[in-house]
């Protein structure tokens, strides 16, 4: 178990009676990108959403097992999910900036967590936008609506928003699948930059993307992890036949 990272132990997720995740154990190291791949409905998104307890907000979903972070089981009912989620950022498939200005989108989180000083907030906004490679495009219109940005810009803004509250881990649920190739390339570039500081878990349908951005890859199938290894190994020499079939496009 990585002391600094995030690790799931025997995680099970139930939708009512149906078991969607059937006992998954995975370790995520700090400053590494892990890709979760697998056919639709294999449970990779559900698994991702259970890492920051986002499934708690859906009625009828039950999660058992352990998720360890900083020497603490964060799947314990006694854990304060509000504090937990500050440490684990999230980016969705479709860009979902708040219906606020570009500036407010970034400043919203830090202000809630206690940063009231205008200069400090300005600095955070600039820093996050620079990290998301969005500063040059937006510095002259920080106070305009974020919804006026293009889809790719919106997605990078969402990434900037998530790092503004200083998380340790960022979860990404198919962050580029709704974007055009140019924006996709920018987001991928950004992921490689961000892994200097954060541990990133990314769900993707696009195997080339998984191969390009990730250090490790887990192949999900029917609610279980079939294979989890270094990305190169998974894509060149998988140990399981199912993995090989999926990557070579024989199903899914």
């Amino acid at each position: 178990m990585h002391q600094e990272g995030l690790s799931a132990k025997n995680l099970r997720v139930f939708y009512g009676e149906k078991e969607a995740i059937k006992g998954v154990s995975l370790d995520f190291a700090p400053r590494e990108v892990t890709a979760l791949i697998g056919p639709s409905g294999c449970g990779k998104s559900t698994f991702l959403r259970s890492l920051n307890r986002m499934n708690d907000t859906i009625d009828g979903v039950r999660t058992t097992g352990e998720i360890w972070m900083d020497g603490e089981n964060i799947n314990d009912p006694g854990v304060d999910v509000v504090l937990l989620r500050q440490k684990i950022g999230m980016v969705w498939q479709r860009p979902n900036p708040f219906h606020k200005s570009i500036y407010e989108n970034i400043a919203f989180g830090p202000r809630y967590h206690g940063v009231r000083n205008k200069k400090e907030l300005d600095a955070i906004v600039e820093d996050c936008l620079r990290k998301a490679a969005l500063w040059d495009e937006t510095k002259d219109r920080l106070h305009q609506s974020a919804l006026a940005l293009s889809g790719g810009q919106q997605q990078r803004l969402c990434i900037a928003r998530s790092i503004a509250v200083k998380p340790k881990v960022i979860l990404m649920d198919e962050p580029a699948s709704a974007l055009d190739p140019v924006s996709t390339a920018k987001v991928e570039e950004l992921i490689s930059e961000l892994k200097q500081e954060y541990s990133i878990v990314i769900v993707t349908h696009n195997m080339h993307q998984a191969a390009r951005v990730s250090d490790k890859t887990a192949f999900f199938y029917m609610g279980k992890v079939v294979e989890y290894d270094v990305t190169d190994k998974i894509f060149t020499n998988p140990s399981e036949k199912a993995t090989d079939d999926y990557i070579s496009g024989r199903f899914g």
């Binding site: 603490e72 006694g78 304060d80 504090l83 440490k87």
Partner: peptide, 12 residues
């Protein structure tokens, strides 16, 4: 700054 519940926190 851990995540265990405490009742004095503003958000609680």
């Amino acid at each position: 700054g851990s995540t265990t519940r405490a009742f004095a926190k503003p958000h609680v």
